[in-house]
Computed example of a mutant assay.
Amino acid sequence: MAGFKDLFSKQSKEYAASRPTYPRALFDFLAGLVEKRELAWDCATGNGQAAAILAEYFEKVVASDASAKQIENAQAGPNVRFAVFPAEKAELNDASVDLITVAQAIHWFRFDDFYREARRVARKGGVIAAWTYGLHSSSPEVDAVTQRFYKDVIGRYWPKEIRHVENRYEDIPFPFRRIDAPVFQIELEWSLRDLAGYLYTWSSVQRYMQENGSDPVEKTYPDFEKAWGGAAKMKVTWPIYLKAGRIH
Rank of each mutant, 00 (worst) to 15 (best):
E35G: 12
P173H: 06
K226L: 11
Y57C: 03
G245L: 08
V205A: 01
I186G: 02
G126Q: 02
R120Y: 08
Y169Q: 06
F176M: 06
Y198A: 07
P159T: 07
L199I: 04
R207S: 11
E38Q: 14
L92Y: 08
S204T: 09
E14Y: 13
N93E: 14
Q185A: 10
G125V: 00
G229I: 10
L33M: 07
A44C: 09
I172M: 12
E35Q: 13
S18W: 09
K226A: 14
A63K: 01
V153T: 11
Y221N: 01
I106S: 08
S67C: 11
G3Y: 12
N47G: 14
T146W: 12
K226G: 09
S214H: 07
K160R: 15
R24N: 09
I186D: 07
W202D: 06
W131S: 03
V80F: 05
Y57Q: 06
Q70M: 15
A196G: 04
R193D: 13
V153S: 02
G229T: 13
R156H: 11
L7H: 07
A90M: 15
F184K: 03
F4G: 02
R177I: 10
G126E: 01
W238L: 02
A87N: 04
A87S: 10
D194T: 13
F176T: 04
W238E: 02
F114G: 11
H248G: 14
A2N: 13
P182E: 01
V84M: 10
K10I: 13
Y169F: 14
Y22A: 02
L242D: 12
L92D: 01
T45Y: 06
A63G: 06
A40K: 10
G32V: 00
A74S: 11
R19A: 07
G155C: 02
I240P: 08
P239E: 05
L7Q: 03
V183A: 15
P239V: 08
S137K: 13
N93H: 09
G77H: 14
K219Y: 11
M209D: 02
K233N: 09
S139C: 05
L30T: 01
D42R: 03
G230A: 00
G48D: 07
A196Q: 06
K226S: 14
Q70N: 12
V165S: 06
E170A: 12
E88I: 02
I172K: 05
D112T: 10
G125H: 01
A105G: 15
A105N: 03
S96M: 08
A87Q: 00
A40L: 04
K60C: 02
D194K: 05
N47T: 15
L39I: 09
A244V: 03
Q210N: 12
Q147W: 08
N73M: 01
L99V: 08
S138R: 05
R119A: 03
E166R: 15
V145Y: 09
R119F: 03
Q49Y: 12
T237R: 15
